[in-house]
Computed example of a mutant assay.
Amino acid sequence: MHHLDAARDLSAARDLPSIAVVVRTVARAMTGAQGVTFVLREDGNCFYADEDAIAPLWKGQRFPLSTCISGWAMLNDATAVIPDITLDPRIPQAAYRPTFVRSLAMVPVGSPLPVAAIGAYWSRARRPPAAAVAALQQIAALTATAMNRIDLTTAPWAPNFALHPTPAD
């Protein structure tokens, strides 16, 4: 999978569920991660809309923006690179303990007010490869363009999703 494949597939996506499928598939292939999540900013929550992983993570669950790393990435409009989840205070340990995740990278989608995030996860503590983080950032930029192009009401699993969150969120 290549950056051009991601661009082609995201430009062909006509609704939010289609974008989610492309994001999870392309991000996992381009990063070599053992898991990927596509997370939407929904009111004051992070909605884990889709995932592709070696074991279940959080698909379909909602967490307050202020209590998870995807929320941190969206609220700060910044990429988080976490080599060891047990050592980072931004990680809700109880949510991660039952999973395979030991390291991760989380990138915001859309700037300056991110509307989503893409996470990549690995099963051992290590610094995520710079090339994987760069690939996630490229996918996030393409995803933001695709999300701006579509009608976001096409996501039956995210009925409260707002494309343009307010800075007060």
Score class of each variant (00 low, 15 high):
C68I: 10
C68D: 14
I69L: 11
S70W: 01
W72C: 02
A73C: 07
A73Y: 01
M74K: 05
M74H: 06
L75K: 14
N76F: 06
A78K: 15
A78T: 14
T79W: 02
A80N: 08
V81W: 03
P83H: 06
I85C: 02
T86D: 11
T86Y: 01
P89H: 09
I91L: 07
Q93W: 00
Q93Y: 01
A94F: 00
A94Y: 01
A95P: 01
R97M: 08
T99K: 03
V101Q: 05
S103N: 03
A105Q: 10
M106N: 15
V107F: 07
P108L: 14
G110K: 04
G110T: 02
S111F: 02
P112Q: 12
L113F: 11
P114Y: 04
V115C: 13
V115D: 09
A116C: 11
I118L: 12
G119A: 10
Y121A: 12
S123H: 13
R124G: 10
A125D: 05
R126K: 12
P129A: 15
A131I: 05
A131L: 09
A131Q: 13
A132Y: 01
A132V: 08
V133M: 08
A134R: 13
A135N: 15
A135W: 02
Q138M: 09
Q138H: 11
I139L: 09
A140Q: 07
A140C: 07
